[in-house]
Design a binder for these strands. Structure first.
Lengths: 364, 364
DNA sequence: AGGTGGCGTGTACACGTGTGCATAAGGCGA
DNA sequence: TCGCCTTATGCACACGTGTACACGCCACCT
């Protein structure tokens, strides 16, 4: 017996050893050291009431000293739950996405879940690999933050019979749940604010055509216009791609108009960044010549010159809500998660009363 | 036999089923369908030359039709390699970190690895949980992007006998490898640039005291000063925390000086953002009154007003290099990874020749 | 005193995959 | 025809954990 013990424990890993990956102690190693069977160790470490308190304490002490960490992979195999979720974003480099990721990750960790991060980069091949990886990893749930997801690969995701929560996107389907910002109300508040400042020629600088959130924000823009009786001018609607570079070009189009707008309502803060630069490049000033609004309230919004008036989106909170919803779905406590969060207009310095001579050619 | 088959396959998951998590098909299900043993399926799916080409093709077809995905968790249990890495950042919300994450993730995915993301938030309790999670998940390697890591929990990380690569931090220890930017040369280039523009009173707005990268950048600042014979004034050195808010306050200190600096060399772009706002708030202009430089070249650097002169750090590339190094370490192809990447000065509009009356009181 | 029940522990198995080894089939040379 | 080699396949086991079930022990009640 003692002989066997010596022989077997010879291969045990020890901290600071010169060779790596010798072997981490297993539950059986601990059982041998504690002179009990391995199920008793398992129960002791799970604080099961089935095991004698003194024995449990002794086992926990030994396990701790040996630096024992139960293998989540072995546990996952037998319990059929990995306590793992997959998180898909188009790219973490986008500040909106990274805030959501932050919220998701914190909440997941607080509940003992680990998160697999994958960015799709809107590349179909990469998306295919992401889905495959999540399937093989046997994630318990999935969160997608990517306005591009649409019909692209969601069907393949649903195949793995696991709850999926979408952040700021919607897709009609079986296992699909979502956390959304009230896009329409948010933009409407921004446009109303501009109208209140006397603006009548208000442009909309959107995202790429066909995205749900862009469509909703555009709808909010239209609604605010209509409600005030301001006619809609198609030439005042341009499209970027949600990033500054494209917004610069889109803004140039607006500035080249025979009668340029006196205010621009941007799809998001990144676009507003490009728009403002474009306006400066034309020798015009924000907000004296043109007012600008954004959407998201990213960290830099209060540090632009002038500080950006924008619609705040509680991004981290949305990540948290998505994860909390997913937890309920995975536990079966909820059969559907459909959350809408409020958008809040933050008025800063990039919007001002329309200048007297700007709207001079007001003919509408 | 047929009886048993019918009985067993009754529980197989099928796409679009109303109940979730019934069961995903296992390798044995595929084996039964293909009328072979499960090891043959295993070999066929690994493209092993041991299995007959026709049989393999048939098996692959059946597996594909059944939507079979081999369980990475079961595989990990037997192979003792999870093809999984852990990635620690203080917070993904930091644009620098998210760029690195992006590079790491892409490279990892390209090589069949999945990444567990965890942000520590510099919270000891959370860091403890992160380490524990990575240990239990049996990650094959770890990448840390966090200037705070220092002596905090790295010792605990090394206990799990797995290679660890640090990005922009260093720590003397057994399993520790790193990818670093040439901080000293980078800042030196920025300071030289300022000196070349005639500046003599150049301030350094650093990160929190004690961080390796801050120490190196400060050293670069000192070195450039010394090389030109410009005396060092301790009052021109202030500390923020790498974020805009703290930089605002630090900059106010500098502006309140009897003889304020004509140029500020910031630890990073985020700090520069705060510094520029602080300067504007005092009614001074950038770069006419005060020149400002940053570090990182984050996405917004070209969109500030004026665009920010900064030291570019190839963040995504650094993430890629870290992952590539880790891959080699895990494969045992390399015993030590120590990479230094070049910093590049990007001159934009936030730096200009010192104004004549600004350095009027030049007494040094 | 014998039956009963609770408590603590061990035994046996399962989870899904990879792999060393044995084995069956078939071809070929002696 | 026999033996040997190659090729293709199956068998048995291992990985580390959780859990249903059986079992032994002791106290207690009848």
């Amino acid at each position: 017996m003692a002989n066997k013990e010596g022989g077997k424990s010879g291969g045990m890993a020890h901290p600071g050893g010169s060779r790596r990956n010798l072997r981490q102690p297993s539950i059986k190693d601990i059982a041998r050291l504690a002179r009990v069977s391995h199920p008793t160790v398992s129960r002791a470490l799970q604080n099961s009431p089935l095991v004698n308190a003194k024995t449990a304490a002794k086992i926990r002490k030994i396990a701790d000293e040996a630096g024992y960490r139960a293998s989540a992979v072995a546990r996952g195999l037998v319990t059929r739950r990995t306590r793992t979720i997959g998180l898909v974003v188009t790219t973490v480099a986008d500040p909106f996405a990274s805030e959501v990721v932050c919220g998701v990750e914190q909440t997941a960790n607080d509940h003992g879940y680990s998160v697999f991060l994958a960015d799709s980069n809107a590349d179909p091949e990469r998306e295919r690999k992401v889905v495959q990886a999540f399937a093989e990893r046997r994630v318990d749930g999935i969160i997608v933050t990517s306005s591009r997801v649409g019909a692209l690969y969601l069907p393949r995701l649903t195949e793995m019979m696991v709850p999926i929560v979408l952040v700021n996107d919607q897709y009609p389907g079986a296992f699909v749940h979502s956390v959304m910002i009230r896009n329409l109300e948010g933009i409407r508040a921004a446009v109303r604010h501009l109208i209140g400042l006397g603006h009548r020629r208000i442009a909309y600088l959107g995202d790429q055509f066909g995205y749900q959130s862009d469509a909703e924000r555009f709808a909010g823009y239209r609604e605010a216009l209509d409600a005030t009786g301001i006619p809609f001018h198609p030439e005042l609607v341009v499209h970027g791609d949600g990033k500054p570079e494209a917004a610069v070009r889109a803004m140039e189009t607006l500035l080249s108009l025979a009668i340029p707008p006196t205010a621009v309502c941007c799809y998001n803060d990144m676009s507003a960044l490009g728009a403002m630069q474009s306006i400066r490049a034309r020798g015009k000033r924000v907000p004296e010549d043109i007012s600008v609004t954004g959407f998201d309230d990213l960290f830099f919004a209060s540090y632009t010159d002038p500080p950006l008036t924008t619609v705040r989106q509680p991004m981290r909170r949305m990540g948290q809500l998505a994860m909390e919803g997913l937890l309920k779905l995975m536990a079966g406590e909820e059969s559907v998660v459909k959350i809408e969060v409020e958008a809040e207009l933050i008025v800063r310095g990039s919007t001002a009363k329309v200048s007297r001579n700007a709207n001079g050619n007001r003919r509408s």
